[in-house]
Design a protein around this nucleic acid. Structure first.
Ligand code: MN
Ligand code: MN
Ligand code: ZN
Ligand code: ZN
Lengths: 132, 132
DNA sequence: TCCATTTTTGTAATCATTACAAAGTATGGT
DNA sequence: ACCATACTTTGTAATGATTACAAAAATGGA
C-alpha cells in the first residue's frame, strides 16, 4: 500500500518505516485495536519495534487527525483510522467493537447550542448478534 | 439526608457511615466527580477514610446500579448518581462536565437492531459558553 | 459476652501510559 | 563523500490510577 505513505505525507507526517507499518495496520484491520494489539502483530516483522514507538506514533496520528481515539473501557484505549463522526458498539462477551455509521453531529441537541462543540463520541454496550 | 440511607437499603446495600457519606456526596454534587475528588472532599470530616473504600464503594454502587460510570478521558473515571440514559459535554478549558438530558436510546439506530443493547453512552467535547 | 460476618483500612502489586536520554537515521550544504 | 544538524526510534525508569490482599475494626444476632 503506497496509499498509506502518501496519506501520511499529505498531513505533514514524515513517512518512516514504523509509521507506515502502523498506519497500514490501522487501515487494513478495522478492528479498533489497542496499542498492545498493534505491537504484538507488528513486532515479529519489525523485531526492533518498541512499544514506545507505537504510543508516540499513535499520539502523532491523533494530533495530525489521521486517526481517532476510542475510549469505551477505562484503561483500554483503542484507535481507529476512520476519523469521520461515527459510533461504536462493543460486545461484552466477545469484546468485538462494531462500527455504527451514524453522524450524531447531525442530530439536534438544543443544550449544545450554547457551547462550541469539537468532538462527538458515542458508543453502546451489550451482546452482539453472534454471541446469543 | 435520610434520603441517601433509604436509597441504599432499597437496593440491598447496607448503609454504613462511609457509604452514606459517599452517596450523599454524589447526590449533592452533580459535578461527575473522580474518586480523588470525592476522597479529598470527605477525608477532612472522616479522617480515617481510605481511598480504597471510595473505590470499593463506587464499584458497589455501579454493580447495584445506583450510580453510573462516565469515561470521557483515558485514566479519568468519573461517577454520576444519575442512572438515567443521558449524555455529557466536557469543556476542555475549565474541565467542567455538563449534563445533556437526552435519551439516546429513543433514537432509532438500525444497525443496533440485531444486537442486544444494555448501555448507552455519549459525550461531546469543546469549549463551554462560560469559557469563550 | 461471644462468635460469625461484613466493612474498612493500609500496603503492595498491577498495568497502561509517559518522560527521558541515548542511539540510530535521514537530510542538506559543502 | 563528509559533516553538522535535526528528527526518529529505542529501552528503561517514572508516573498514576486501580485492584489485590490480608489485617483490623465494626456490626449484629445468639
Ligand atoms: Mn470505528
Ligand atoms: Mn450526568
Ligand atoms: Zn459478541
Ligand atoms: Zn469551560
Amino acid at each position: 500500500m503506497e496509499n498509506a505513505c502518501k496519506h501520511l505525507k499529505t498531513r505533514g507526517i514524515k513517512p518512516s518505516y514504523q509509521r507506515i507499518k502502523i498506519f497500514e495496520y490501522l487501515l487494513r484491520n478495522r478492528n479498533h485495536p489497542t496499542v498492545d494489539m498493534i505491537y504484538r502483530k507488528l513486532v515479529p516483522r519489525i523485531p526492533t519495534l518498541s512499544k514506545t514507538t507505537v504510543y508516540n506514533t499513535l499520539n502523532l496520528f491523533i494530533e495530525k487527525e489521521i486517526a481517532s481515539i476510542i475510549i469505551i473501557e477505562e484503561n483500554e484505549t483503542r484507535y481507529d483510522a476512520d476519523t469521520s463522526v461515527h459510533g461504536h458498539f462493543k460486545c461484552r462477551k466477545c469484546t468485538k467493537v462494531y462500527d455504527l455509521d451514524i453522524d450524531l453531529s447531525k442530530i439536534d441537541i438544543p443544550m449544545l447550542a450554547e457551547h462550541s462543540v469539537t468532538e462527538h463520541h458515542f458508543y453502546f454496550k451489550g451482546i452482539c448478534k453472534n454471541c446469543r
